[in-house]
Design a protein around this nucleic acid. Structure first.
Lengths: 227, 227
DNA sequence: ATCATCCCATGCGTGTTTTGATTGTCGACG
DNA sequence: CGTCGACAATCAAAACACGCATGGGATGAT
């Protein structure tokens, strides 16, 4: 995920930028639409956070330009203009969401996530993957369940990461093997079974609810609810 | 576009409903999540407008349920709870947008349009196959009829999936055998009959209407209406 | 050299799948 | 009106595959 912030107020822009970076999201800033346009030509952004009161070209016009050229970029308008008329115009020119200043950063973040959630192939790449009380920090490779810290081996970790990135999805052994062992699956081995077993011993054995479930004849699935 | 409004305040719900209908959008209302769930099982909605303060099951929980089962439905939360915490929770459970009461109808309309426009971009194939109140989530392999969860074996599941992907189509045993057992049909076995029987026991026996029908001399057909 | 990690092979118990025989249903025809 | 035959539904035992556990060997790191 790469975000472009277009705002002529220096403070606001850098405040958002540093906030996003705390979440591991790359962010660039642009003071006006002309600069913004150039940056979008150079790099490909997943989202744009856009002010309306901009010098030269205003936010509405810029929004239309983006929509035309980069059809699938998520656009979030962030402005002091809070009247319904303004909002309607914003959505009219193609914004995906509209947030009024002053704002809480956490809400901005949540809205940004929401508009990206659909578009992206997988869910937004959050640094911390969560399911029930199990957490996996992809960056630090730290795994904890409840308040217990767990130590996994490299392979166990890769497997868990794959599971957590595909929650509620039934997966065959072949699928898992190809993604976690990244060799085309050599039939006649049961590594997957063995490692699922290892994982279970560490993350499920002493806890509840169980997260890794077996689907007989199909494979495995990671999900929260029992059965 | 078909919208479901879940709100226990009668006035609000019907206000929105009639507003949407002015725009030629079909809208249904449900007073609580249980009713809402049933309606979603029967018809397929593009969007849900969801209150949080609901009797029995609150909006957050219902939102999660919807997200799980109907991945590609747009959810807009509409509630009096305006704190950032509430909003965050809303987005956390999978809402696409969050609007605080009191609201202007025009803004609701604009936001509804925005979240649907966005969703239409990527062709997300529906993962939930439906017929009457029977649902098969192809991704998680979960099968439910009404609100009962059913457990099928791998072969039963494959058969059901084949049936549901070819609704209202008469199919011979040979056709079924080739697709579900993927061996060229060894005449002289009655596996198909046996498994249709197993399936019926699980998905049709205690329910109505019956979905799997026998065509004597031809084969089987899956369809909703009796005969 | 020692240790942890990773992968493979084997065997067992259990649930699933298949088979083959029996029972049930319905229409045609004597 | 009863019988027969074709077809479908049901049943239960047998064959089979699947998933899980375990021990041990190969590999690589310290």
């Amino acid at each position: 995920m790469r975000v472009l912030i277009v705002d002529d107020e220096e403070e606001v822009a850098s405040f958002i930028k540093s906030g996003l970076e705390d979440y591991g999201i790359v962010a660039d800033t642009a003071a006006d639409a002309i600069i913004g346009q150039k940056m979008m030509a150079e790099k490909s952004y997943t989202s744009v956070i856009l002010d309306i009161n901009l010098p030269i070209i205003n936010g509405y016009e810029f929004c239309q330009i983006i929509r035309e050229r980069y059809r699938d970029v998520a656009i979030l308008m962030l402005t002091a203009l809070g009247s319904t008329e303004h909002k309607l115009t914003g959505f009219d020119v193609g914004a995906d969401d509209y947030l009024v200043k002053p704002f809480e950063f956490r809400e901005l973040m949540a809205r940004l996530r929401a508009i990206n959630r659909r578009r992206a192939v997988g869910p937004i790449e959050s640094v911390v993957l969560k399911m029930a009380d199990l957490e996996l920090n992809v960056k630090s490779k730290e795994v904890r369940r409840g308040n217990r810290k767990l130590t996994l081996t490299a392979r166990e970790l890769a497997l868990l990461e794959y599971f957590m990135k595909n929650p509620n999805k039934a997966m065959t052994r072949a699928e898992i093997a190809e993604n976690v062992w990244d060799v085309s699956f050599d039939t006649g081995t049961n590594v997957v079974d063995v490692y699922v077993n290892y994982l279970r011993k560490k993350i499920d054995k002493d806890f509840s609810p169980k997260l890794i479930h077996t689907l007989s004849g199909i494979g495995y699935i990671m999900k929260e609810d029992e059965t």
